[in-house]
């Protein structure tokens, strides 16, 4: 496989990040009987899928879950179905049908919508499938409460995150025990930055949705539901453009995500209840 020329000084750093992620992935796969991976088709979870294949020498030995709010951008669903077929994914799509029928939508309250169509749908799926570990591609630099996350982060049976009393995490020794009905969120990309992810995508030639690349002076920096996600003004049409754009950008990655701004401590409130 032909690789792009490495960015000076980045190869060893990306290798360090990759090693740590692979260790976490293998550790979780070994410790948990029924893991699953949460795939949003965004750049981070695509990088995570790639790392899983690295960890298991090409295989993806657990199901890949997409929580479909039905408000996703059509390009995302197309990408999902294409890649699922191409990579032979064991794809599980879950929706909160009851809430959708009841007419829950962003227009009737963004936080309520996220909680119902994402958090609740995920909770019901976990109950049904009895997954006891969930791989998620969240990162510390995305947002303040994520900066304080653990690599292995327990959620109780009620889905709650007890951020006041997180278990110690020393030297790659993670919290792996959990009560019946509870689960562990596994965060293999926690230590990566937005720039790291793009550099890794470039180095490894990982396919991503073209919504990330600028068209007519706009691109998406973060992908989500169509009504709640805004593109940014940008001319970055290639991976190299994106990487250099991030060196100087003055806003945060999730600035275009409406739910983050739906009131004070919106993300904390969502996340304590089990949001990603």
């Amino acid at each position: 496989m032909k690789r792009p020329a490495p960015i000076s000084g980045e190869t060893s750093r990306l290798r360090e990040l990759e090693n740590e992620s692979i260790y976490i992935i293998r550790e979780a796969y070994r410790k948990f009987k029924k893991p699953a991976l949460l795939w949003s088709m965004g750049k981070d979870s695509c990088a995570l899928l790639w790392l899983v294949r690295k960890a298991f020498f090409g295989r993806i030995p657990f199901p890949v879950v997409h929580i479909d709010t039905t408000y996703k951008m059509p390009e995302m669903i197309k990408f999902r179905d294409e890649k699922a077929a191409q990579w032979g994914l064991d794809l599980v799509v879950a929706k909160n049908r009851a809430a959708l029928q009841a007419g829950v939508s962003p227009a009737r309250g963004k936080l309520k919508c996220c909680a119902a169509l994402k958090t609740h749908a995920l909770r019901e799926l976990l109950k049904k499938e009895k997954y006891n570990a969930l791989f998620l591609a969240i990162r510390r630099d995305e947002e303040g409460t994520r900066a304080k996350e653990r690599c292995f982060s327990p959620r109780d049976g009620g889905f709650e995150w007890d951020f006041r009393d997180q278990p110690p995490e020393l030297w790659g020794q993670f919290q792996t025990d959990h009560r019946e009905g509870a689960h562990i969120r596994v965060h293999p990309l926690l230590h990566w930055t937005e720039g790291d992810v793009w550099k890794y995508i470039r180095q490894e030639n990982i396919p991503v949705i073209n919504l990330y690349f600028a068209k007519n002076g706009q691109r998406y920096r973060s992908l989500g539901c169509l009504p709640c996600t805004a593109p940014i003004n940008s001319r970055a049409a290639t991976l190299d453009d994106i990487i250099s754009e991030l060196e100087t950008i003055r806003t945060s990655e999730r600035a275009g995500r409406a739910q983050d701004k739906a009131g004070d401590y919106a993300m904390q409130k969502l996340r304590v209840e089990g949001y990603m």
Partner: peptide
């Protein structure tokens, strides 16, 4: 407050858990 992102941290002016920043 740029680091102490939790409501409880900002209300009490304390840090509860470690944050990692590049």
């Amino acid at each position: 407050f740029l680091l102490d992102a939790f409501e409880e941290e900002q209300d009490q002016g304390i840090t509860i858990d470690a944050a990692e920043i590049r």
